[in-house]
Computed example of a mutant assay.
Amino acid sequence: MKMTERAQQLVRTRTPFVHATVVRAQQPTSAHAGDEAILLQDGTIEGFVGGQCAQNSVRKAALGALQSNESVLLRVLPDGDLQFPEAPGAAVVVNPCLSGGALEIFLEPQVPAPLVRICGATPIADALAELCALVGFDVQRGIGGSDSPDSLTDTTAVVIASHGGPEAETIRAALDSGVGYVGLVASKIRGASILDELGLTEAEQMRVRTPVGLPIGAKTSAEIAVSIVAEVIQAIRKGGLAVPVRLSSVAFEALDPVCGMTVVVGPDTPHLTIDDIDYWFCGSGCRTSFAEAKTGS
């Protein structure tokens, strides 16, 4: 599968990843400018951006880029020559495991957009779906009566614009799943009545907006949609509303017992199990040295 096709597949499944591209390679590195790879949360590297020693540095920087959701230009050096432009988004890593050469790799995180689930088949719901897509949100219509709370775990916001139907049940399902923003399109009186029926805790009440949307005097369906989207954006950018994603297994760090380097453990990280103890290494050289020391051969 081509790298672009794989990236599109991960975007469709809302799987976080980092796209890594070698922008400059100094011999004798095995990578070349233009080489690229996709790095997943569990440390998997699909593609090629350098040998095993370079991969450890790239893997660690990629996981950091995923956490910050900021791109970074990474320079991997084999020694202490730290000549590199001082600039935001640039970083230097000295990797003594490298046999020589240097690499510059651009790491671009791809984190899923906020997912807004819209319940209802009304003009407001239709306008809201269009506007959410316009600002870059992912949109799904409805949550379905058979959906379990677990099916909403990657949802940023649920907006109910059905003007009737199972509104209370939908609010309850969204709250039980941990959705941080639940909006109900209703008058102040009707909305308060529905919430009273649910017997919400104070913390749950703070997650439900009704009337929903910023108070901009909206009247039309499109204007109401604008007020709702603006409120969701405000909650994300200023209110700390989380944009959850479905997590795969996440890579962890270990200490190479030979060279002392911190290793981000992935599926292809050199590894030994001796006397039921697991050891991970920056490269095959350290693994071989450790095995010889342990076995005396």
Rank of each mutant, 00 (worst) to 15 (best):
G136D: 08
K60C: 04
A20T: 03
A87T: 12
G89F: 10
N95E: 15
L63I: 13
F137I: 01
P78R: 08
I45M: 10
I45E: 00
V111K: 02
E46T: 15
T122R: 02
D42M: 09
C97K: 00
L40G: 01
T29L: 05
T44L: 11
L131A: 03
F84M: 09
G64F: 04
E46S: 12
N95D: 15
D79V: 10
S30L: 13
E130N: 07
A31Q: 06
R6V: 10
N56L: 07
L98H: 07
G89S: 10
F137K: 00
C97D: 01
D35E: 13
L40N: 01
E86P: 03
G100W: 06
L39E: 02
L98N: 05
Q26E: 15
I105E: 00
E46F: 06
V18F: 02
T122S: 12
A37K: 07
F17E: 03
E104W: 10
Q8P: 03
A113T: 12
C132E: 01
P112S: 09
F106S: 05
E130W: 07
G120E: 01
P88G: 12
E5H: 12
L134C: 10
Q8V: 10
V116R: 01
A91G: 05
G120V: 02
L39T: 03
T13N: 14
A90R: 15
D138L: 04
R117P: 10
V94W: 01
R75K: 14
A33T: 13
G51D: 12
T122V: 07
P78S: 14
D81E: 15
Q9C: 08
K60T: 12
F106V: 02
Q140Y: 04
T21L: 11
E36T: 07
A25P: 03
V135M: 10
S99M: 14
L128R: 06
V72M: 05
S30F: 09
G64D: 13
P16W: 02
G120C: 03
A20K: 00
H19R: 12
H32L: 14
D126R: 13
G136L: 07
A113P: 08
V93P: 01
G47D: 08
A113V: 09
G34I: 07
L98V: 09
P28Q: 08
G51T: 14
Q8L: 15
N69H: 15
Q140S: 12
V72N: 00
L63K: 06
A37M: 12
V139M: 05
Q27L: 15
I124P: 04
G43L: 07
R141P: 06
E36A: 14
A25T: 04
A127L: 03
L115Q: 01
S30N: 08
P109T: 06
V94R: 04
T21F: 00
V116W: 00
A31R: 01
S57L: 04
V22H: 01
P114A: 11
E5Q: 12
L131C: 01
V11L: 07
V94P: 01
R24H: 12
I105L: 07
A7W: 02
T29I: 13
C119S: 08
A62T: 03
H32D: 11
L134G: 04
A33P: 05
C132Y: 01
P28I: 08
F106Y: 12
G100D: 05
R6Y: 13
F17Y: 14
